[in-house]
């Protein structure tokens, strides 16, 4: 199996507060990897390092290494703008840009100078279809994205990320504010998407992790407690903490 992302002894702190205490983990290509753990476990910060969105946090210090396809992305020479095209991200709260549905999806492609009408239109359509949103919005691509429901907005954000044509998709608790039906739609979309993309899903909904991920990692207080195939982690965890978390004893 190919390793897509590898972190080595990754440490992160905000000022004096340690968020990640030396995390070494591999993310495999064309799989869905779930990161779970209670609030403050560092799982969200971990993925925000993977596309260098962490750069926008104030006084964050990072040490260790993060490789994508064998290249260290924490190297100061790396073009983080280019990195973010390869590693897309969907946030916990859907944040549509205040413009039309079409322009939201086209935002990324247009930055890459993909402006030609037909090519852009088919890319937008393709992305919306992959996010299972096309049928609901195909007649109103020019209306404001802010008028969509919360679930639709989150799928719009997924489609917008897909339009970047990334290799990796990072999702930071994408369903935390959504109803079960919207959640199901997103999960369905992710299941299809793993054929083409490497997906990292951060969630503290253990059932969701169990449902759709291939690999699962459990984090606690900035440390990776357990990592393995989802089946193994959920049926036969080797750590007591993992078991307690999965059974809902804390978190």
């Amino acid at each position: 199996m190919d390793i897509k992302i590898r972190t080595e002894e990754l440490r992160l702190s905000f000022g004096k507060r340690e968020i990640l205490k030396g995390v070494t983990v591999d993310v495999y290509k064309n799989k869905i990897t779930g990161f779970m753990g209670p609030a403050g476990s560092g799982k969200s910060s971990l993925i925000s390092i993977m596309n260098r969105m962490i750069d926008f946090e104030e006084n964050a210090t990072i040490s260790g290494r993060v490789f994508i396809d064998g290249e260290d992305i924490l190297d100061g020479e790396i073009d983080e703008v280019h990195l973010r095209r390869r590693v897309g991200m969907v946030f916990a709260v859907p944040i549509p840009l205040p413009r039309s549905i079409f322009d939201n999806i086209a935002y990324g492609p247009r930055l890459k100078n993909k402006n030609s009408g037909r090519e852009l239109r088919s890319l937008v359509q393709e992305s919306l279809k992959k996010a299972f949103l096309w049928d609901e919005v195909k007649d109103r691509l020019n209306s404001s994205a802010l008028k969509l429901s919360g679930g639709q907005q989150q799928r719009l954000c997924l489609a917008r990320t897909l339009a970047l044509e990334p290799e990796i998709i990072l999702l930071d608790e994408p369903c935390s504010g959504l109803d079960p039906i919207s959640t199901a739609k997103i999960e369905e979309a992710l299941n299809e998407l793993k054929k083409e993309y490497t997906i990292v899903l951060v969630s503290n909904n253990t059932k969701q992790i169990a449902r759709i991920t291939d690999y699962a990692a459990f984090f606690y207080m900035g440390t990776l407690i357990e990592y393995g195939t989802t089946e193994k982690v959920f049926t036969n965890p080797s750590e007591r903490k993992t078991e307690d978390y999965i059974q809902g004893k804390f978190g």
């Binding site: 290249e71 020479e77 790396i78 073009d79 703008v81 280019h82 990195l83 390869r86």
Partner: peptide, 8 residues
Amino acid sequence: MIKKALTK
């Protein structure tokens, strides 16, 4: 991977 070229 592409290196930094942010002259603009």
